[in-house]
């Protein structure tokens, strides 16, 4: 069994959308931009439908522009592809870059459009 670090616990809590655990782990000293044993930060793996988790992480200084080391996908790409408009707005308000491109040269708005998320497309287009 692999040892779980605070960082692993933080990313797990974020991925499960568990806001109370995220907040308590941050209070106990988990580094908000620290990576887990898969080399990912909490904001990269958080449950996209959970803006309360995103808000807790961002308020603690989470970097919203960290890209996946394999695919260059950013959290804004993931939020746009899955269509969670509240998350898209929150990330943009925290300075997530709407012009970030993944390894297939796609912008977040491209992924929103591909997946039929009209509200997200409309919002991202106002940023141009």
């Amino acid at each position: 069994m692999t040892m779980m670090t605070l960082q692993d616990d933080l990313t797990t809590a974020a991925a499960k959308g568990n806001t109370a655990d995220v907040e308590s782990l941050l209070r106990r000293g988990a580094a908000v931009n620290g990576v887990n044993r898969f080399g990912r930060t909490a904001v990269q793996v958080m449950m996209m439908g959970s803006w309360p988790v995103a808000q807790a992480l961002l308020q603690h200084g989470a970097d919203p522009n960290v890209a996946d080391r394999s695919t260059r996908t950013t959290p804004l790409h993931d939020a746009a592809r899955t269509g969670f408009v509240d998350m898209v707005r929150l990330l943009v308000a925290a300075q997530a870059d709407p012009q970030a491109r993944d390894n297939q040269s796609r912008l977040p708005v491209d992924l929103a459009r591909e997946n039929g998320h009209a509200e997200v497309v409309a919002f991202l287009e106002t940023l141009k």
Binding site: T12, D68, T71, D78, R81, Q104, R106
Partner: peptide, 26 residues
């Protein structure tokens, strides 16, 4: 598929959130 976080575990095995590196989807 590349695991990015553990999201469940138990006696039977482990569940991961992972990324499909071809499509980029989770």
């Amino acid at each position: 598929y590349e695991p990015v976080a553990e999201i469940g575990g138990g006696a039977y095995g482990t569940v991961y959130k992972a990324r499909d590196t071809e499509s980029g989807k989770f």
